[in-house]
Amino acid sequence: MYQLILRRTGRSLLAIIGVSIVAFIAVRMSGDMERFLLPPDAGAEDFARVRHEYGLDQPLYLQYLFFIAKAVTGDFGTSWRWHDPAWTVVVDRLPATLQLAAAAALIAFLIAITVGPLSAARPGSWIDRIGRVFAILGQSMPAFWVGLMLIRIFAVDLRWLPSYGRGDLSNLVMPAISLGWYAAAAQTRLMRSAMLNVLDSEYIKLARLKGVPEFYVIYKHGLRNAALPVLTLMGVQWAALLSGSVVIETIFAWPGVGRTIVEAIFNRDYAVVQAGTFMMSLIFVGANLTVDLLYGVLDPRIRNAR
């Protein structure tokens, strides 16, 4: 078990270092930093001074080490657009992103846990067919288009829900559905096939022979065993939901981290781009690590694998 923890943690650390290198090089590649910092009429010695001040005259690997040394203390520089430390800008927007991802995960789970077992209980029935169409459509529709169509139907035509911003629960409904749409499709599909396998086993037959009502057979005896693979998938999807929020937040003007990063790219606010990607990667890597380790706790075969 300790070996597993060590190996997975080491790999996560490598991943974070990888992200930091990419984020660092990306900003260096995007042009001469000093040109952003100086007025257009600045002379040659101004350039030299600024280059020296910001360490831009140092070798690249030293610059990277400086960047890392500052980054671990949460210092990514100052956002020129928000006039705040970049890390603070991003952290302030984190709760909104987490709220959206959690709501999407909840919706996906609720759909999977109702539609999945029902369609597995009666393969070929109308609910099964609707479920399958839904799953195939979910994989083929871009999330941002689902969002736009929802806005048109529920905000413009029916005027039931607000189309943008963050406020009460009604603001959350459409972004959460568009974000959870794909996850719901994948979970429902997995829930269905896991349930089909479970319902075929001996103890389910025994339960039916004993005269246990069908509802309990499915939701008590079946679901407990069928839910495991779905829970694993949810762990992986949690990370995907966080990064998927980049697009959804942009459509619904949701004040989260993803939208802030996209805006920062267009504003050339590189401190925020670096801080934002760094934080999202931390969460992503952390979520994956947690899933891996939980898996090890739950399944001895994985725990003892090489």
């Binding site: 996560s12 990306a26 995007s30 980049v246 990607t277 992503f284």
Partner: peptide, 23 residues
């Protein structure tokens, strides 16, 4: 395979955003 593992633990859309911003 280490490169593969590391890369898969970075969210794709973020990688795309950074690269697009850089290039």
């Amino acid at each position: 395979m280490s490169i593969v593992d590391i890369q898969m633990s970075v969210p794709a859309i973020l990688l795309a955003l950074i690269l697009a911003a850089a290039i």
